[in-house]
Design a protein around this nucleic acid. Sequence first.
RNA 1: GGAUUCUUAGCUCAGUUGGCUAGAGCGCACGAUUCACAUUCGUGAGGUCACAGGUUCGAAUCCUGUAGAAUCCACCA
Length: 877
Amino acid sequence: MKFSSSYEPGEFEADIYAAWESSGVFAPSVLTVPVDNDGDGVDDRFEKPEDRDVYSIVMPPPNANGNLHIGHGLTIALEDSLTRYYRLHGKSTWYVPGADHAGFETWVVYEKTLEKEGHTRFEYDRDELYARVWDFVAMQRGNMELQLRALGASCSWKDLTFTLDENVIDRVYTTFEKMWNDGMIYRGEKLVNYCPKHQTAFADIEVEHVDEKGTLWDIAYTYDGGEIIVSTTRPETLFGDVAVAVNPEDKRFKKLVGKTVKLPLADREIPIIADEHADPEYGTGAVKITPAHDFDDFEVGERHNLPRIQVISEDGHMVNVPEEYFGLTPLECRKKVLKDLEAAGLLRGEKEIEHAVAHCYKCGTVIEPMLKEQWFVDVKKLASTAIEHLDAGEIKFYPENKQKVLVNYLKGLKDWNISRQIPWGIAIPMFRKADPGATDEPDWIFDRRTNLKEIEKSGVKYVRDEDTFDTWFSSSHWPIVCTDWSEDNPTPYYPLDVMETGADLLFAWVARMIMMGVYLTGGVPFREVYLHGMVLDAHGKKMSKSKGNVINPMDLVAKYGSDAFRLGIIRGRSAGMNQAFSENSVIAGRNLCNKLWNISRLIQNIIDEESGNSDASSDYTNDNTGEDWICREISKCVKQVESCMEGYRFAEAMDILYSTIWDKYADWFIESQKIYRNVPLLKKSLETLLIVLHPFAPFVTETIWQNLSWTNGMIINAKWPTKLEYDPITAGQFESLMAVVSEVRGTLAGLPGANKGKKYALLYDNDSLVEDNLLLIKSLTKVPAVTALDGAPRGLRLALNNHELYLDVPENVVTEYREALTEKILIVGKELDALNARLMNPSYVERAPAYLVKETRDGVEEKSALIERLKQQLELI
RNA sequence: GGAUUCUUAGCUCAGUUGGCUAGAGCGCACGAUUCACAUUCGUGAGGUCACAGGUUCGAAUCCUGUAGAAUCCACCA
């Protein structure tokens, strides 16, 4: 087999992925695990999750017609590592890939291309637009899926779920119908966040609040014998005022409550009312009430049963206003109103203030609160049931604190506006009676035939609602639709083992999946939630196109390989934390892959040289120095990786693997095997490390596996290793040897002056550890010779270890070394003092655990002995 | 305004219930090198763990406060 001198990922990755995919290994092997709970001979449910041998996880669907960004790269790296890890454990794993129609995002892109062609959405009806966007998406689709493959995602492609798939729409309609029947859906005229540019409403969560400077104007509203001055940032909405509110506790205005005042610039009287909303401390303490254009005022209006007067239309122009203002944009109107107020002597002051202004998260346009009839979901029950399940600890969160944050959010959750005025989405299956006064039939009926503009029921004509669902409404079904769960067809893959996604989606998505899962299935949709933080640029700044600091994951994959990217993106990352990312960590990953490749190359060379040893790995025995030790270290590594994966500590698992492979396996064990060759152990140990690394670096481990002469099948299907056998005493002895080697190296490198780094022979006196490992020590330290001391000790005594060892350096060099030696004595002396001080403290000796006290005592003994040896050496000079 | 989190080496970050002399990668310095790997090997420098108190035999870790940073939520006209 061929191992070139360095690992070239580009030569292998595509073929390896194709081999996995065509072998069918991505699909789950077990479909049902029936259990007969009550023993009546009929299977009535599936195994409890903790007993089952399946593992399920679904992919947060990337935009179907987009490209993957760095965050997707992280998502895939994490989810695929989990999937592969549990597959190696023999579980039937199901990683369901997805593609998102990305309602609003895609719509914005498509609307731009429409504009470029000189058209607007208003020229077409909904079905036409839907068909056009469908084609538009189909044309661009596929990139994302290729990129998932390039990242090594071992997901079950035949189960790919698109958010507009028929079964998704069916499920959403079924849910909507159920909610409708349960009385949880209502049509309400409410103020919604409305983007005048996109002409659609948004959920609260889709709105971005930005602190901005604004002006607060004081305007006089007059009444017989006086005036009341109100403060407002939006004078143009004055025509929609229906009241002036003052705080009931505010003594200044107490007498005025109940009076009416004249609305400036308009011929209308409005009442002065008392409401807590008015803050005596803010502005003048009196506030105008415009229920149709302000969220607070809307609520005040509800409390006081006030009318709602809409003065800004959905396309952003003034309506229901005096003629001279009609048709102006709100901004034009504001200017004119201010001018006219000033002329009328009613403008009493203005002041700069800072306040939060809502913006469209996509185009930045200021959100206009707009009175609209929309479908709402009553969330009270959904949220409270979800909270019950969360409080019962049915979902474990990583990081832990997110559970509290989520419950807090659910407690304050407002009713959910699910109507969107965008054609690209799932149509709302509701129809309105064409002639409101005609019959006793209901005004609205549920019907799935959203492809029809009109339907007839009981002889009454109904017209469809043209709106579509908020994408989060359908997305909240994701665990259910991906696992194909249904009332009559429960599956062992539901609930999911884990939901992995970005921490920024905790509210928008995770919260809704939980509410929906609990509502529809009676149980939580996943057992655990792992939330990753944002991937920031190398300087800890958010990546954005405008800043030009966006890193494209595919560029890194092309440059360093898929595994390098995966290793790099996971490194140094912990749950929920936004963390910086730089190419350096990818380079470190690439280096590890290359290291492993070369380790394998050397081992294969050794095996090729040892004739007749190309059969599958067999039993091994540890015969030589270092072998028990590496078995111990690998066993330790496997165990630690297991515990890390259980706690979703990916970065830590990787660190452990990195140092085991590099600092232990390559630097010590492989080096020692250049002297002693234990072919069965070489095979076994390499296989073990390859398997344990495979979840993180699937391509290189599989490529090596395929290139080795003795391995069978594919590593993706391998069995997770059990511990390697070793003798702990021998394992410990090797550490003494390592310490000796390190001291020789360190001492040589630290020799003074021109002798720095020069190699001198190592002399030993009556030392079996050294005597038994002459060749190994010579090879590891690169000293010219390791020989028994003849005659009196000479040269430089190695004092750190309790061995009688000397470096055979000339007299003058020893003398020059004196200073370094003195310094060392001082340092060790300080350490000894610290230990002694601890022992002098009676509380410590009394109250600290015995093993610690013993360790301290041992330390004192050790350090004293060391100082003794160092002093002897000094005297020798 | 509220919530959550963070502050550890030049940089990016680990440090699981408090326990010896606080770790890693990258970077840096010095040295090595035909014989698996320069994507290499060896050695080393670099930290009053943001600050101030407290609890404890013992604090990077727990508590309180201060300062700074980030994210999310929020109706301040």
